[in-house]
Nucleic acid binder design. Structure first.
Length: 828
RNA sequence: GCCGAAGUGGCGGAAUUGGCAGACGCAGCAGACUCAAAAUCUGCCGUCAGCGAUGGCGUGCCGGUUCGAGUCCGGCCUUCGGCACCA
């Protein structure tokens, strides 16, 4: 073998070897346990960044490790290939999005291959190709037929920069998730998916996901936002109208001193019509409507409102209370109207203070003594109901049940479970997405494209001007069509689907990527699904992960797959940081993976990234750390080169009796087996690749020390050690281990070898070092037989010179003996 | 405001079940090799006091439990992330 480690020479050689030998091809094999490891597929922006390298290195270690452990591993890769940047490039550089995307994919595919990831490339998918989006459209039709896709006019989030609408999940702090510009409200007719129908299951089934990080589940829980309460109506006798309100505190209904409508509430116009307040209220409503999302919803915005001039009647006590309009009531939560109970709601308290509205105490704290006059804020804790007619005297939780029952018996209200989650707005006024397969016929109305007509292909000759309608609307050939029902001239939907739809089912397509009759075959999907380990960034905690869970449930209900949840275990990897900030072009702290691979090779890049921090934490980039990883591989190479001749000795491959080893050899073998155990536990159990690698480094250090002391080692031991060492490292640094395996061990690819098994006999020791403490402080160390009994250990410790000195003249209160660990002598 | 995570040497991090704090790596210092340098191999490397043996202090802060606490309990502080007028 070469004397020096030269990654450039060996990496491309093995990449070609793996590709040509289809080393990582996978098929259904029911004789083996299956394992599906998946990393979030990338958007083909053109180049891999370090975050990708980290994400995919983590997945690759797992895939290779599980394969060596005897699992049938599915480890695919593909492209989340529809999306805005392609279209922006088209506007800017006059290149077609399809061509731009294809170029980027081929560049990034090359970069992935140069990193040596073990993907089954035969399963590659790209969501922008007709043979993929055909099935995205097919799934849309499935949703449509099940009543889960519908069109409605609604106030929606609009991004002026991206010229399109956005789903609620895609608005972050009032700004567009992609371009960070301010989101405004628009009234538009759009397509929605009825994710709210699944709100309860999406919430409840989080309990079926013990393998997900707690914080991701909490974020989804918050997002779904379930609350239990009641809905009932206040009547407006003079208009013969009703104002339904939703509340979780119907136990405080006798404390209502006003009713508030959201500015956008549909009844506002009727209520103010013809009153002297009309003009002022309308001006207020208009002002609120034109405010951005942030300035409307920030908590520090002062509550503001106006009296409408009208009154409503509280069904509980028949009291007349004023109807107000205020900025703090949200139009699209609950009923868009709330009852104001200043004494027991902090917001109502503030509002009542500002506008001098009355307050009435209806819940008394358990110890009594509360009164409006002495209160400085609302009381929202449990207590006893007061001033509430027949309900007075009940504790408030009992009161809630009784009052809900009261409403239900009279048919004027009911218990209600409410969610914060809204339906998923999926229309996008953009070209580069999957067309929504719908036709509008003047006679038949909204008509789905028939399945046989799919895919509805994107036309190629399109002008990309930035504007507020989809470029598809200007393509006459695309828009004009015939109604599939009556054959009349009809018009095609010109919006495309949110790209999050494409990524909501790709993990199932991987199980059967070339199917031309269905999105995927149920047998194949059921064999592989769910994904055993999913790996990606925390930024998708809600977006992609919630949508995918929703899709999986709908597909399960449709009988297409028999899993309830798509991702059994989820690992959210941390960011790659440099100089304390996330790598980004604007900060100028980007390190290009291609450069690192070019200089040190893929193995070094992977090793550094896996060693520098555990996967979940942020990783601080360090050029010197990369040097260190490279140095280690050189060190590995040299020590194996040192033993090349020993390994070529035919005796090296013969079985040997461990009893014939010298003490130094036994010690080395013990370190080997401890390392095998540690690496196996760290990689397979808790994904602490950093500590697994450090254990292997210690083994290599031990081997260097051994080399300096033992000139004629037993060849069988060296063989056992090197062959195990290479297999332990193979998932992390696949090229150099493949090369060394071929050079000194032989027999096929290291990646087809079984994972080393640790031998507990080999890890046993006859003597251990025990710590001797006096009053909990380490004062001495003692080497004793492992199986020494406690009394003898205690005696030995007490007799040690230093210990005897330290305890002389003092009273021994207690002696604690932990066999194999320590002796603690407590003295006074 | 609510929920969650984290806080350990000069730095990244380790300590998995309450039992030697700082594994492994980086940086630094020294030695060997060399005409020399690089590379490599070896050793040292929390902090204060001491020539040294050794001792004191030390895991964000204050307290507690325990023979023994980075780890458990109570109360804070700081940083980061999520949600945030959701009735």
């Amino acid at each position: 073998m070469e004397e020096k480690y030269l990654p450039q020479d060996i990496e491309s050689k093995w990449q070609t070897f793996w590709q040509e030998g289809k080393t990582f091809e996978t098929t259904v094999n029911r004789k083996l346990p299956e394992y599906y490891v998946l990393e979030m597929f990338p958007y083909p922006s053109g180049n891999l960044h370090m975050g990708h390298v980290r994400n995919y290195s983590i997945g690759d270690v797992l895939a290779r490790f599980k394969t060596m452990q005897g699992f049938n591993v599915l480890h695919p890769m593909g492209w989340d290939a529809f999306g805005m940047p392609a279209e922006n490039a088209a506007i800017k550089n006059a290149i077609h999005p399809a061509a731009w995307t294809a170029e980027n994919i081929s560049n990034m595919r090359r970069q992935l291959k140069e990193l040596g990831f073990s993907y089954d490339w035969d399963r590659e998918v790209a969501t922008c190709l007709p043979d993929y989006y055909r099935w995205t459209q097919w799934l849309f039709l499935l949703f449509f037929k099940k009543g889960l896709a519908y069109k409605k006019k609604a106030t929606v989030n609009w991004c002026n920069e991206c010229n399109t609408v956005l789903a609620n999940e895609q608005v972050i702090d009032g700004c567009c998730w992609r371009c960070e510009s301010m989101v405004i409200k628009k009234e538009l007719e759009q397509w929605f998916l009825k994710i709210t129908d699944y709100a309860d299951r999406l919430l409840a089934d989080l309990k079926e996901l013990p393998g997900w990080p707690e914080r991701v589940k909490t974020m989804q829980e918050n997002w779904i936002g379930r609350s239990e309460g009641a809905e009932f109506s206040f009547s407006v006798p003079e208009l013969d109208e009703k104002i339904p309100v939703y509340t979780t505190r119907h136990d405080t209904a006798f404390g209502v001193s006003y009713v508030v409508l959201a500015p956008e509430h549909p009844l506002v116009e009727r209520i103010i019509a013809g009153r002297e307040e009309e003009e002022a209220v309308r001006a207020f409503v208009d002002r609120m409507r034109n405010l951005s999302e942030i300035s409307r919803t920030a908590t520090d915005v002062e509550k503001e409102g106006l009296f409408t001039g009208a009154y409503a009647v509280n069904p509980f006590n028949n009291e007349r209370v004023p109807i107000w309009v205020a900025n703090y009531v949200l139009a699209d939560y609950g009923t868009g109207a709330v009852m104001g109970v200043p004494a027991h709601d902090e917001r109502d308290w503030q509002f009542a203070d500002k506008y001098h509205l009355p307050k009435r105490l209806v819940i008394q704290q358990p110890e009594g003594g509360l009164s409006i006059e002495t209160m400085t804020g609302a009381y929202h804790d449990p207590g006893t109901i007061v001033n509430s007619g027949e309900f007075t005297g009940l504790d408030n939780e009992t009161g809630k049940v009784a009052m809900a029952k009261w409403l239900e018996e009279r048919g004027i209200g009911k218990r209600r479970i409410n969610y914060r989650l809204r339906d998923w707005l999926i229309s996008r006024q953009r070209y580069w997405g999957a067309p929504i397969p719908i036709i509008y016929c003047p006679k038949c109305g909204v008509v789905p494209v028939s399945e046989q007509e799919l895919p509805v292909k994107l036309p190629e000759n399109v002008r990309f001007d930035s504007g507020s309608v989809s470029p598809l609307a200007n393509v006459a050939d695309f828009v004009n069509c015939q109604c599939p029902v009556c054959g009349e001239q009809a018009r095609r939907e010109t919006d495309t689907m949110d790209t999050f739809i494409c990524s909501s089912w790709y993990y199932m397509r991987y199980t059967d990527p070339k199917n031309t009759t269905l999105p995927f075959d149920a047998d194949k999907a059921n064999y592989w699904m769910p994904v055993d380990q999913y790996i990606g960034g925390i930024e998708h905690a809600i977006l992609h992960l919630l949508y995918s869970r929703f899709f999986t449930k709908v597909l399960q209900d449709a009988g297409l797959v028999n899993v309830n949840e798509p991702f059994k275990n989820l690992l959210t990897q941390g960011m790659v940081i440099k100089d304390g900030a996330k790598m980004s072009k604007s900060k100028g702290n980007v390190v290009s993976p291609e450069e690192i691979v070019g200089k040190y090779g893929a193995d070094t890049a992977r090793l550094f990234i896996l060693f520098a921090a555990p996967p979940e934490r942020d990783l601080e980039w360090s050029d010197q750390g990369v040097e260190g990883a490279y140095r280690f591989l050189g060190r590995l190479w040299r020590i194996i080169a040192h033993y090349e001749s020993v390994l070529s000795d035919p005796k090296a491959r013969e079985q040997y009796d461990p009893e014939t080893l010298t003490q130094e050899e036994k010690d080395l073998r013990r370190i080997l087996h401890i390392t095998i155990k540690k690496v196996t536990d760290d990689v397979g159990g808790r994904f602490n690749f950093n500590t697994a690698i450090s254990a292997v480094m210690e083994l290599v250090n031990a081997l260097y020390a051994f080399r300096d002391h033992v000139t004629a080692p037993k060849p069988g031991l060296i063989y056992e050690l090197v062959s195990s060492l290479l297999r332990l490292l193979a998932p992390f640094v696949p090229h150099v281990t493949e090369e060394l395996w071929g050079a000194v061990i032989g027999d096929g690819s290291v990646h087809k070898q079984p994972w080393p098994v640790y031998n507990s006999e080999a890890t046993k020791v006859s003597e251990v070092e025990v710590v001797v403490q006096v009053n909990g402080k380490v004062r001495e160390k003692l080497v004793v037989a492992v199986d020494i009994d406690a009394n003898e250990l205690e005696n030995k410790a007490m007799k040690m010179e230093r210990i005897a000195q330290l305890i002389e003249g003092k009273k021994v209160v207690k002696v604690i003996c932990v066999p194999g660990k320590l002796v603690n002598i407590v003295v006074k």
